[in-house]
Amino acid sequence: MENALSLIGLLTWLQAKHFAADYLLQPGWVLRGKGDLRHLGGYAHAAIHAAGTVPGLWLSGLDAMTVTVLALAEFLIHYLIDHLKAAHANLHPAAMTTRAYWAAHGADQLLHHLTYTGILVVVM
């Protein structure tokens, strides 16, 4: 039971961190930089996600190497997901009032949350 509570605690941390990083901590230059490998916005955004994950992993009692590998993996995966979403949006622009927009947004969020499932599997 204690392990289940620890995993729920880590998941709660990851969900709250995700909300803050995706919806509160994205100024315009970050948003504009996604989808372009030459701009820092996407990298900064992925770094905020990775940095926000680190305290939750530390509190889970993981060693420094595991924390580092998981944070780096999250950075790379998060950047790739956002880059692909931005590239798709550039090729297939959709207004916020369309099903296509919300399907792409939902797929993006699902992939991010499945990343957290992977993190939980490693922590177990």
Rank of each mutant, 00 (worst) to 15 (best):
M1D: 07
L5S: 11
L5H: 10
L7P: 00
L7V: 07
G9E: 02
G9Y: 05
L10C: 04
L11Y: 06
T12E: 04
T12A: 15
T12F: 05
W13R: 07
L14D: 01
L14T: 11
Q15W: 01
Q15I: 00
A16W: 02
A16C: 10
K17Q: 15
H18F: 01
A20M: 10
D22I: 12
Y23E: 00
L24N: 04
L25D: 03
Q26W: 08
P27N: 09
P27W: 12
G28W: 08
G28A: 12
V30T: 08
L31E: 14
R32N: 14
G35P: 02
G35I: 08
D36V: 06
D36H: 08
D36E: 12
L37Y: 07
R38A: 14
R38D: 00
R38K: 14
H39T: 07
G42W: 07
H45E: 00
H45V: 02
A46T: 09
A47M: 11
A47C: 06
A47I: 09
H49Q: 06
A50R: 04
A51C: 12
P55R: 09
P55M: 11
G56L: 03
L57G: 01
W58I: 15
W58D: 03
L59M: 14
G61R: 10
L62P: 04
L62H: 10
L62M: 14
L62Y: 08
D63A: 13
D63C: 05
D63Q: 12
A64Y: 05
M65G: 09
V67F: 02
V67C: 14
T68K: 00
T68H: 05
V69F: 06
V69S: 00
V69C: 04
L70D: 03
L70W: 01
E74W: 03
I77T: 12
I77D: 00
I77C: 05
H78F: 02
H78M: 03
L80S: 11
L80K: 09
D82F: 05
D82A: 10
H83M: 05
H83G: 00
L84H: 09
A87E: 11
A87L: 13
H88A: 12
N90L: 10
L91Q: 14
H92D: 00
H92M: 09
A94T: 08
A94W: 10
M96E: 15
T98P: 02
T98Q: 06
T98I: 07
A100V: 10
Y101D: 02
Y101C: 06
Y101H: 15
A103K: 11
A103I: 12
A103Q: 13
A104R: 13
A107N: 06
A107R: 08
D108K: 08
Q109H: 11
Q109W: 10
L110E: 00
H113R: 13
H113M: 09
T115I: 04
Y116S: 05
Y116E: 02
I119C: 02
L120W: 00
L120F: 04
V121M: 11
V121L: 15
V122R: 10
V122F: 10
V123K: 07
V123T: 12
M124D: 05
M124T: 14
